[in-house]
Simulated scan of single mutants.
Amino acid sequence: MTDQPPSRRAEYAEATRVAIVEAARRLFSRHGFVGTKVDDIAAEARVAPATVYAVAGGKQGLLRTLVDQWTQAPVVAETLTRHQAIADPDEILRQTAATVRSMREDYGDIIRLVLTTAPQHAEVAQALEVATTRYRDAVRAVAVRLGEVGGLREGLSVDEATDILWFYFGYSGFFTLVDDNRWTYERSERWLAEQAGAALG
């Protein structure tokens, strides 16, 4: 027995939800979270303001959705799964750097939005806390795997390794190198992997 295809109503509802989320992302990036109104999102998505609340939970619901898209992107779990089949610490770090680069290129606008808005907005600060917990959990998983394959120098704990990895692969690494130093993503990715390896090994 095969699954029934989604009804036309369900397809329309999903298309409407996607349009609202994409409109919010564009407007948040352009005008900021505070500077964007629900009416603006509705106009951009070509729906009624009430639909933005009903379908997406207003601005706060949309922000949570965007944070989920970023922090639960499939590439994170895929990378951690691949690490289980790799015994070379340098390759694990190279793949980690590549994944972080991919996340910056795909979700950098969301990350910047949350980081810059959180100090002035309690609900955004809560979203950042959730995002950071998920992010650090993934970084810790990398540290654990490095420990399993001999990628941590003697006496370096997983907690310490997690902090070191966070220094290189947390929020600031790529933003500093690419935005402030005007490095390419490729150069930044290579340097971060090399420096993290030197700090851990």
Rank of each mutant, 00 (worst) to 15 (best):
L93R: 05
A45T: 03
V52W: 01
P5T: 04
S172R: 12
T51H: 00
I111E: 14
F175W: 03
T36D: 11
V52F: 10
A118L: 12
F28Y: 14
D90H: 10
S7L: 04
T99R: 11
A97N: 06
T16F: 02
V18N: 06
A141P: 07
Y53R: 06
E123H: 13
Y168C: 12
E91F: 06
A199K: 01
R17N: 00
Q72P: 01
G170V: 15
Q126L: 07
A15I: 00
L146V: 07
A98P: 04
E148K: 13
I41E: 02
V100G: 06
E129Y: 03
R64P: 02
T65A: 13
D90E: 13
Q60P: 00
T96D: 06
T176N: 08
E11N: 03
P89Q: 13
E148T: 13
P49K: 07
M1W: 12
A43M: 09
Q195E: 08
Q120W: 08
G58Q: 07
R25V: 00
G57P: 04
P6D: 08
W191R: 05
V114R: 02
E123K: 11
A73N: 09
L27G: 08
A10F: 05
L200D: 06
F28N: 05
R112K: 12
L62I: 14
A42R: 01
A19I: 04
F28V: 10
V158A: 09
A138E: 00
L113W: 01
E44A: 15
W191D: 07
V67L: 02
A13H: 07
Q4N: 03
D137R: 15
T96G: 04
W70A: 14
V18L: 13
E22S: 10
R136M: 05
V76G: 05
A125F: 07
T116A: 09
D179Q: 05
D163M: 12
V124C: 09
T116L: 12
D40E: 10
G155Q: 02
S102L: 14
A23F: 00
G170M: 13
V55K: 01
A43Y: 03
E105S: 13
T65Y: 00
L113F: 01
R182K: 14
G170P: 07
A24E: 01
A98F: 06
